[in-house]
């Protein structure tokens, strides 16, 4: 019983982080058809920004998170306008190479500024330690993580489903030509969406700094997970990646807990089979 609750709790927390980081990638890839391997870079930057704001400048966690998110949103917006937009419509190879280049450059810069070691998160005292729920000890901070993550996800879904902005994105994912024809400025839409997607990734990276350690090899080390969430969840969707991220979070946690020897092999074997069955993901067309 304890094991089940622990796995569920850690798995959900992990899945939420994966979702926050990957959902922007799913939407931007569906929207622009751009194979962006470098999405994890923005999660890493969010993590570094938050850690620095907290550890160096003494900001509180809840001030650091939105600030880090905003900063990375701007970086994402600018990069989209200056670099990414030049490669729309280029071959898949060019896009893969370009985003690999961004990964490597970011790894180098981060290493120069923050050094090669992982950055520890210094949480305020009231978030340290464990809370006991139903006789089971669980880390307090993860509760905050799950609560905060849920709030953001709900807000995201409301924006996506209920606002004009969300409707525009959905229209453009479905049919870009049609969206342009009815007067949507797709260039600006791409930039704003890209910025928001990177901002969400930053939030995920910052919030999950004690789940996915903030270190220079971050974008390379976790790339498989982000790409898998998007591929399994389906491009251009915001619900598919949610299911995919939670499943992978839970499965990975369960595997590490129950079968530490086998590591993640099972999960990837499963992902492999799933993608063969449904190459466009669980929400995509067969």
């Amino acid at each position: 019983m304890t094991a089940v609750v622990t796995i569920l709790f850690f798995g959900v927390a992990y899945g939420m982080i994966l979702y926050l980081i990957s959902v922007g990638l799913s939407v931007t890839m569906g929207l622009m058809g751009f194979v962006n391997l470098a999405h994890g870079v923005f999660a890493m930057l969010g993590g570094y920004a938050a850690v620095t704001l907290m550890n160096q400048l003494g900001l509180s966690l809840f001030a650091a998170l939105p600030l880090a998110c905003a900063m990375v949103t701007v970086v994402g917006f600018v990069l989209e306008r200056t670099l990414y937009s030049r490669l729309y419509g280029r071959s898949e190879l060019d896009q893969v190479l370009f985003s690999m280049g961004l990964i490597l450059i970011s790894m180098a810069l981060v290493r120069v500024v923050w050094g090669p070691l992982a950055q520890p998160v210094q949480l305020p005292d009231y978030l340290k330690g464990q809370s006991v729920v139903g006789g089971i000890e669980l880390p307090t901070y993860r509760f905050v993580l799950v609560a905060f993550g849920t709030a953001v996800i709900v807000a995201l879904w409301v924006i996506f489903e209920r606002t004009l902005f969300g409707a525009r994105i959905r229209a453009a994912v479905d049919n870009r030509g049609m969206a342009q024809a009815i007067g949507i400025d797709t260039g600006r839409l791409f930039a704003v969406t890209f910025g928001l997607g990177t901002g969400l990734a930053a939030l995920g990276g910052a919030l999950g700094a004690d789940v996915l350690a903030i270190a220079p090899n971050y974008p390379l080390h976790y790339i498989v997970y982000f790409m898998v969430v998007v591929a399994v969840g389906g491009l251009g969707s915001i619900r598919g990646p949610f299911i995919a991220a939670l499943s992978i979070g839970l499965a990975d946690t369960a595997c590490k807990y129950l079968l530490p020897e086998m590591g993640s092999v099972f999960i990837f074997a499963f992902v492999f089979a799933l993608l063969l069955w449904r190459p466009n993901g669980i929400t995509g067309k067969r």
Partner: peptide, 24 residues
């Protein structure tokens, strides 16, 4: 049997699995 994103991710996953197996 796949192409595009699915192929990229499968190629990543296949190599990752072999790497993990060799590691274990």
């Amino acid at each position: 049997r796949t192409k595009g994103l699915a192929f990229l991710v499968l190629s990543l996953a296949a190599a990752f699995m072999l790497h993990e197996l060799a590691n274990m």
